[in-house]
Design a protein around this nucleic acid. Structure first.
Lengths: 204, 204
DNA sequence: ATGAAACATGAGTCAATGTTCAACTTTGAT
DNA sequence: ATCAAAGTTGAACATTGACTCATGTTTCAT
């Protein structure tokens, strides 16, 4: 019998103030270590050194290197969605929201250059978390498109593939104009891209 | 003086028919090994086992694990661009070309599932090759848009950001509808996405 | 036919680093 | 003030896998 009992995963939630502070330091250090060096180059000793704690302390809070990485991806996913949602909340209509949201996203990427390095690499380290990230993003987007279509603000269409298309667009523009080179401002990029998507390529 | 002379990188080009055949076997094996296991999980012994040669043989043809990976990325980049260009060559106009090209791209991805695993992971292994891949892709795209605009087939605009937007869209649609799930056919996805981009979201 | 260059072999080397653990210190409820 | 629980420490362990190399085999121009 006893060998069928699942060992409960150790509860590593800190109980004291000191513990909570150390955990925050470790997460922050991990974001920098993974962001600068990538998952495989990153070392636990690199994280603990940045956090100013001993190697063993890491394992008081995380089961493994992969676990801290997963926690980080979820964290950054949440932060990104929250930031864009906040920026967009007072937009007068869907197309304005698109423009404001994309501008905010590119600006956010510039402020958090570790974002791509971590979230995109998750594809190869923790694919479930990566898929979860984009599925969640798409689901919100899809609902916004559907609502706007039913209000008559945009033409109706297949909202899920449209959402994937728009997000793919944003991710690549964020990479190129947020991280690689800053030869256009976030607002300029958003104006061009949303102009394309709002008015269409076809002449008439 | 002599310590200023650059040691020429060993020329590993095979001289005999046997050598060329072994090289081809190694490249093919590497594509499968990297495609299935990802860069870091992939082992040189995995490549040589698949190729049916001894470990040491690998180093007759490649200097390192990273070098074979770079060669592979360049190879797949070329193959992808060639495939799309071939599919599109008889398209009557730019918007038709977009639809045909995206359909062909998604179909190609389904046929070559290792494509994303290898090209996207290059971002973290050999960023220069990764950037080169997308810069080349964008440059071709940009030229096509500019030519179409000057022919009056599409509205004029900032072609480089538009190209990045369209490619980002394609990459994400390829991932979602080419690899993750096949709940829509390549042609259906392309119709929806190019419909969006050609006609625009705004109602009128 | 011949021999020098090309190619193939795989056991062994070596460095890197994720994880464990036993001893020690700090915290905070009572 | 007390002490059990929580937190900290870093040396040691264990695994992994890229790369080397000395030796042996095959190819092909002559």
């Amino acid at each position: 019998m006893s060998d069928l009992i699942q060992t409960a995963p150790a509860d590593r939630t800190p109980r004291t103030e000191r513990g909570r502070k150390t955990l925050r330091r470790l997460l922050k250090a991990a974001a920098r270590e993974f962001g600068e060096r990538g998952y495989h180059e990153a070392a636990i000793t690199g994280i603990t050194a940045r956090a100013g704690v001993a190697l063993g302390t890491f394992y008081t809070y995380f089961e493994s290197k992969e676990e801290v990485f997963r926690a980080l991806v979820r964290d950054m996913s949440r932060a990104t969605r929250a930031h864009v949602a906040e920026a967009v909340k007072d937009a007068p209509d869907r197309i304005a929201a698109e423009r404001i949201g994309l501008t905010a996203f590119i600006a956010f990427v510039r402020q958090h250059r570790e974002l791509y390095r971590i979230i995109e690499e998750a594809q190869f380290i923790a694919e479930d978390v990566y898929r979860e990230h984009y599925r969640t993003f798409v689901e919100g987007y899809r609902r916004n498109l559907a609502a706007a279509a039913s209000r008559g603000e945009i033409v109706a269409g297949e909202d899920e593939p449209r959402a994937w298309a728009l997000i793919g667009m944003s991710v690549f523009l964020g990479m190129r104009y947020g991280i690689w080179e800053e030869d256009l401002s976030p607002a300029e990029v958003a104006d061009i891209a949303i102009g394309l998507v709002a008015e269409g390529l076809r002449k008439r």
